[in-house]
Amino acid sequence: MSEQMTAANKEKLVSDLKVVIADTEELLRATTGMAGEKVGELRERLGVRLRDAKDRMLDLEQALVDKTKAAARATDDFVHDQPWKAVGVAAALGLALGVLIGRR
């Protein structure tokens, strides 16, 4: 995956993967009673791919959590190292948002 993918895109991807996994599990449950060689092979392949997708989703989710924690730590370090700059940035953002909201 690209390192440039935003956190929102990653969260959306994790959410979409969870939906696909849930749908696949439901499909596997629904076809439990069906007989036939092709159905059996399909169920086996779906089972393998489902396990792989779950593993990838967990890895992606963990990477997202790790990056979020790292960003929070970096922000915390910046605020502790340069508190007046942080106050200035927050005030500037507040002013800009106030002006934007005030125009509506």
Rank of each mutant, 00 (worst) to 15 (best):
A8C: 03
V89Y: 10
V39H: 09
K69L: 01
L64A: 08
A92V: 10
V99D: 07
E61F: 00
L42P: 03
Q4Y: 09
V48L: 10
L17S: 10
A71E: 05
R29L: 14
D23Q: 07
F78I: 05
K69N: 04
A70F: 01
S2K: 12
E44S: 14
L95R: 03
K18C: 11
L46A: 03
E3M: 02
D16Q: 07
N9R: 04
A8Q: 08
R29W: 09
A71G: 02
Q4T: 14
A70K: 11
L100R: 12
A63S: 00
L58V: 04
D66V: 00
L27M: 14
G40T: 07
L58W: 01
L95M: 03
A72W: 12
L28T: 03
D55R: 13
D23H: 04
E41Q: 12
Q4C: 05
M34I: 13
K18E: 14
W84L: 13
L17H: 07
L60H: 01
K85R: 14
A92C: 07
V19T: 11
L50D: 12
V19F: 02
K54M: 15
A90M: 09
K85D: 13
G40P: 00
E11G: 08
E25L: 08
G47H: 12
G36S: 06
Q62E: 01
E37L: 15
L95I: 02
T68S: 08
M1G: 14
R103C: 07
L42T: 08
G98F: 03
T24E: 03
A72G: 12
L46P: 01
S15P: 00
V65N: 00
E3T: 06
G88M: 05
A53I: 03
L46K: 03
A35M: 14
D76A: 14
A74G: 00
K10A: 02
K54L: 08
L60Q: 03
K38W: 12
N9Q: 15
H80G: 08
K67S: 07
T75F: 13
Q4S: 13
R104C: 08
